Simulated scan of single mutants.
Amino acid sequence: MPIARLSDLADQAQCPLLVVKVGSSLLVGNGGVRREWLAGLVAEIAEARARGQRLIVVSSGAIALGAATLGLDRGGRGSLADAQAAAAVGQIALSGLWAELLGSHGLTAAQMLLTLEDLEDRRRYLNVTATLTRLLDAGAVPVINENDSVATNEIRFGDNDRLAARVAQAAQASAVLLLSDIDGLYDRDPRQPGATMIPVVEGVTPEVHAMASAESNSGMGSGGMVSKLQAAEIAELAGICLVIGNGHHDRPVARIVGENIGTLFLPRRKTGARKAWLGGRLRLKGSLTVDAGAAAALSRGSSLLAKGITGVDGEFLRGDPVEIREAGGRIVAHGLSEYDAAECAAIRGLHSSEQAEVLGYAPRSAVVHRDQLVLK
């Protein structure tokens, strides 16, 4: 049965594999590790393992720890070079800490450092899946972080919320728990009078996005509620639940699960594994603007034909991922283009009977075939 309530996160039958994301402000305080708090969380992880659950940890904190060691201002985020240097120093301390604390409960920690490209490239994504599967089968607890010491602005996730959702997709997890600095999603800025926390969200809609703040309360991390909603969207494509809960408490998982304090995002749909990977991509090579008729046809499960394309943006090649959007800017779908950008521009608006003369060869059946397309 699918997860329906927060208490299901502690049920091995309902949630056999859980991804737990730990934010920087939870791990680091006043320049040092919040060791006692982390020891309590690790004890909860050990209890979940004793119930038969598998766990993956996505851990922030390397940049914050390294910045404190190197004496860098702005928490190591003053520049890309500072962040990379801080991560190189902090990651050693962070991985050692997880290994020590998990080891005290007889659990083996396994470190994986990932960049955006590792999960955007299909072959590398499958390699990540295989490694995670083997580690979990061997009884290890994978501890994952973004490889900030080498990632540039162009190949960064930028926050571990979305990384956690992508890892959950790759591992085919049951749920993602984002431990953060807030109890959950509120209907407005929680600092405003009358703000109300929303316990359950069935699908991330434009109305839900309107409730989000881009700011991280702590000022230490790089995420905010916007990134958490993006993570929920990524998770729901694979039929994975996502929970936002407050980690600033002793034994935070017990509080979220036992006292029912948090926001549970229930997926509206589940796509196939390849389409979930495609729909969760964060970097696209270009975009195709379509007319209302084409947008309606896509919503009914049709492929995208050149006749319905009104605009082409970006530089992309055949097989590259592109965004499909309406004239007003609403994103309709992501898909893999059967043509490069120049060819798309040349045949946009044309019937298939007119395309051969322009292309110099018989046209393909679609610009984006429905098997290579996922609705947003």
Rank of each mutant, 00 (worst) to 15 (best):
R330D: 12
W277M: 07
H248Q: 14
K270G: 13
R268I: 09
A254M: 09
L350W: 06
D340Y: 11
E146S: 03
R34G: 02
L178A: 05
G221Q: 00
A93N: 11
E233W: 03
V167S: 10
A170R: 01
A138T: 04
L9G: 08
L266Y: 04
G71H: 07
G219D: 07
G262A: 06
D320F: 06
S104I: 07
D161K: 00
T152I: 09
G78A: 07
A356S: 15
H249Q: 10
F316Y: 04
N217E: 04
G78T: 04
S213A: 11
E117W: 10
I3T: 00
G106H: 10
I63P: 02
S353H: 13
R269K: 15
N145R: 14
D118Y: 02
A212R: 12
L113A: 03
L101T: 10
S149G: 08
R191K: 14
R300K: 15
R166I: 01
E36W: 01
V204P: 07
S104L: 12
G335H: 08
I240T: 05
A366P: 10
S352R: 14
N260M: 08
L282H: 09
A327C: 09
D189I: 12
I309S: 00
S352G: 11
D148A: 02
I347F: 11
S180D: 05
G239P: 03
E338Q: 13
A341V: 07
A295E: 13
L126F: 12
R49Q: 13
V253M: 15
Q230E: 15
L114P: 02
A273E: 14
T271S: 13
V253H: 09
A130V: 09
G308T: 06
N260P: 04
L304G: 04
A273H: 12
K285I: 08
M220Y: 06
G66K: 06
D313E: 15
G335Y: 12
R124W: 06
Y361A: 10
L27G: 05
V150T: 15
M112Y: 07
C15E: 10
R269M: 13
G247T: 01
L17A: 02
S149V: 12
V141T: 04
D8E: 00
V150D: 11
A50F: 01
D189L: 11
G262K: 01
L229R: 03
R300Y: 14
V257S: 04
A110M: 10
G158Y: 04
Q192I: 06
K376M: 14
V150L: 09
V128K: 02
V201T: 02
L6G: 09
